[in-house]
């Protein structure tokens, strides 16, 4: 049960208060050049996604909060969220995972 913090309104909540939206920072080709989108670009935009073992930049919706979409950087191995940042922003630099000794 992941814990998230919305960077727009500051609400902290269980993942059930939010909605996952897949990989972030994917440009929609038709939005910029609607008349010149190659098949390959359209296909990649629709169907090809990164599947990293490690840092993943992804979109989330503050569904039970302010209703705004935002971005997050999550480590897909440790499930740790490294950063929450607003829509339209670039992912901030994040430190390596430090593991804690009990």
């Amino acid at each position: 049960m992941l814990l998230l913090i919305c960077p727009v309104c500051g609400a902290e909540g269980d993942e059930t208060d939010f909605q996952y939206g897949g990989e972030a920072h994917i440009a929609r080709p038709a939005s910029s050049t609607p008349e010149a989108v190659s098949e390959a670009d359209q296909y990649a935009y629709l169907h090809v996604r990164a599947n990293p073992k490690g840092l993943h930049h992804e979109q989330w919706l503050c569904a039970r909060g302010c209703g705004k979409w935002f971005n997050a950087t999550r480590d897909t191995v440790t499930m740790e969220f490294k950063a929450f940042y607003k829509m339209g922003e670039k992912p901030p630099r994040t430190p390596r995972t430090r593991s804690a000794k009990p």
Partner: peptide, 11 residues
Amino acid sequence: RPGETRERIRV
């Protein structure tokens, strides 16, 4: 016995 963890757990 417990070794490293990524969570905030003490044993």
